[in-house]
Design a protein around this nucleic acid. Sequence first.
DNA 1: CCTCGGATGTGTGACGTTACACATCCGTCG
DNA 2: CGACGGATGTGTAACGTCACACATCCGAGG
Lengths: 344, 344
Amino acid sequence: MVRMSDVAREAGVSPMTVSNVVNGRPGVKAETRQRVLEAVERLGYRPNATARLLRGGRSGAIGLLVPDVDTGYYAHLAARLGAVAEAHGYHVVAERTGGTREGELGALSPARVAAYDAIVMSPVVLDAGDLRAARIERPCVLLGERPLPGPFPHVMMDNIGGSTLATEHLIRAGARRIALVGGRRAVAFGDMASLRSVGYRRAHGDAGIEVDDDLIVEVGSYSMRDGYDAVLALHAEQVDFDAAFALTDAAAMGVLRALADIGRDVPQDVQVVGFDNDAEAEFTIPRLTTVEPGNDAMAREIVRLLLAQTGDGARPPGPGDRVAEARLVVRESTRRIRDVRSRR
Amino acid sequence: MVRMSDVAREAGVSPMTVSNVVNGRPGVKAETRQRVLEAVERLGYRPNATARLLRGGRSGAIGLLVPDVDTGYYAHLAARLGAVAEAHGYHVVAERTGGTREGELGALSPARVAAYDAIVMSPVVLDAGDLRAARIERPCVLLGERPLPGPFPHVMMDNIGGSTLATEHLIRAGARRIALVGGRRAVAFGDMASLRSVGYRRAHGDAGIEVDDDLIVEVGSYSMRDGYDAVLALHAEQVDFDAAFALTDAAAMGVLRALADIGRDVPQDVQVVGFDNDAEAEFTIPRLTTVEPGNDAMAREIVRLLLAQTGDGARPPGPGDRVAEARLVVRESTRRIRDVRSRR
DNA sequence: CCTCGGATGTGTGACGTTACACATCCGTCG
DNA sequence: CGACGGATGTGTAACGTCACACATCCGAGG
């Protein structure tokens, strides 16, 4: 490996001068600069990023720590964040934690966090205490579901509002027995599933409709397969339903597939709504009505909060929760509504 | 930041002893070890990964450099690679290059490559010369389409064989005018599209069917949207077709959607085949017949080749191309074939 | 002719860790 | 009783870069 000192010797100057040239600092005569650059070229010198980092530099990388990278939602988030971060001279790298305690702690280990200038994390099992214990000495934004007390700003979508919107829409379109795919019967931690279940219940309450717990299917991971299995289970147990609200678009895709398999038409027999507004939702058959949780706004907000913590931006934001506004994207998997008067 | 020397002072030993304790090296008395660990605890010391890396350590990270992270194929690849790499003590981080020259060069810059112990890259625009110029001083495996001469092993799927299989299947199922979505009219660089187009032509040739170039639709990026637009274009120009072979499953999803929009039944009016066997293909309506390019085998092979280069594994593999075997996964988007006798 | 100051370049460490060679201690064996 | 060797611990230097304070040179101004 060619070092700065090698270049220095070749060019007949000191390592510091090489450093100054390579980093475009002023105070080097044009002629000297030229000589150094030639030496760099001749020797094929490339600065060592690790040494720079040790010396206190930046890597330009933002780490995105998510449970999965092959789920529509996180994959699209990575892409969106990448686009926004690029404009600020950063690039995004995505890491999969698996949503397990071990995986999340591993990803947050100092050894791995050190490679990043900043962290964006969607914690699944870790709580505020774990996060504190991890001593993340980097700008960090937490993502997703639970409001987590701690030193870091938290960007969360409007889970309750979004799911209320989705459920209201189904009810106004005539649905009375709405399956909740991936919901929780008992509201637990304030995790994503619980929050979205709250919206489901709230809309029912507002409309004066009783919720039948048999309609709520708890699933493992909100994947296409989970959505598929949930509908088959409902069908096997002969639970009657005229709509399904899937907690993620991925699950909704499984739901659509399963409904086709059991011979029920969407939206005539069963209406379906998803959540996330993944790119895929526009191409399913039928096209999926879904909740757009403010994906673009969230990506921008995340980067803004990160930058603010580096001091590049404005005042550092205090810990606390940010909420992007959710809206409904109506497509073909739900029926037309007569009463178009908006309720919220 | 607490340093090793701080711990050393606290415990009344030398920094080296702390290093030995922290890294579990032998030759430290149990009592001393205990004292050091207590000091570590008391001070909240965490080893500095950057310094370790500089000193010659490993980061445990494998960089996956791909054009997109939100395309089914690459997203699933990242997940698969992650699973395999984990078993060997590595973790995978995915980076998006955008498939542009600038993006690919940026991702390969020493500053960014330095963070990884090894690289897996799917080059889109970079050629062998660029790769050589990038001086990747890490184990590296190239991925995907073009056979690239150079120092690195190259894992490629059997593009020609897979697309031959797909096209043959359509022909045997009665298709005579097969649209090639994303294909190339003129075979160019030996890139993915060209190779898959070759298989398409070969199967036609074998069956004695002439290819009508009007059926070949060139697209930008093999996304769902591209597949969708391609079919609409064909329809607008009143090109007659009874099947479509989409070069990726993502594009195929767009194709399915577009066919539904123009009112053509799949598989009765038009049969559809994709390529990649993305997880989504099992959930589309109808389920997508597609080419399984040997995804799992490729993931394992990639990690094996990486390990071999680190010396952890067996003999380092020479540069050259590896091919995983492709097979067809027949689902619902194609018709049943009477003549089940396999031809290949 | 001396001094002052801008322009240009250099030497010294320090970032935090670890490989390596060496020092020290103490019990054991001839 | 001296030598030997295992067990334990330490000092030095190096990984490659850069901030900082300082040195040197040269022309201008008094």
